[in-house]
Amino acid sequence: MTPSKRLQAALPAFVLSPSLAAIAICVYGFIAYTALLSFTGSKMFARFDFVGLRQYERLFDNPRWITAVENMAIFGGLYVVVATCLGLYIAILIDQKIRLEGVFRAIFLYPMALSFVVTGVIWQWLLNPGLGLEHMVRSLGWQSFTFQWLVDPDWAIYTIVIAGVWQVAGFVMALFLAGLRGVDTEILRAARIDGAPIHKVYTRIVIPALRPVFLTAFVIEAHLAIKSYDLVVALTKGGPGVSTELPSTFMYSMTFTRNELGVGAASATVMLTSLAAIIVPYLYAELRDDRRA
């Protein structure tokens, strides 16, 4: 090999090495560091006195963590189901060869362009009894109208669902719209000739054909749900009380404000493993499909 050829062969590795090193240290390195810390008795600062699974026991003995996990189940479940159904429904409506389709698509996609903090603040104002919806309806004359989910500990978690779904539904719609456009129009003509009424066309033919889109939508929504943090902080700050605590907000307050670094690291590790349980099978299936194609 001539020197110039050798340089050419080495160049990609050379160019990529800084970012590879950064990822190796800042992502995987710190993941490993966090996992390591979760087995120590660290309080305010990192200490390396290994205590085994002590921190995990403390984590699951903490009622606040249990609340956070329960909230995660409510929020995650509703967020995924409602956003998927709503996104699919809007996509089907937009797919009816409507006028100004591009305008509607943009309108529904817009919330995705906002950060979670902005979404949270907007919905905080909208749902605030003194400022938003309740105030507006009362000023229109319906004095007995109450809508106080935001300040009711039993209902506050559902306001987060509303805000989260509002933000992501347009994106899910775009996913499904692309899937619907991929369905051969001759299939729809064939279904008409076969005498299928319109709801049967969707339930028996079109929606089953969208299976890969459902999978994609589920994975995207699930990981957004698990890592959602800023939305809760902006909308309810985990309150009233700890009623809208999520694992992510729990982790933050344990690690950075309650001087329980070990418990925080343990909760972070639990979150990472549950995310990995969702993402890894998906990646595995996707990559295997790529190789086959």
């Binding site: 051969d184 001759e186 299939i187 064939a190 279904a191 033919i205």
Partner: peptide, 19 residues
């Protein structure tokens, strides 16, 4: 179409993929 008592074979076959 369904009332005309006809059947059609399409160029792309138009088979229902999930069935």
């Amino acid at each position: 179409p369904k009332e005309r008592d006809i059947a059609m074979v399409f160029q792309s076959y138009a088979l229902y993929p999930a069935m």
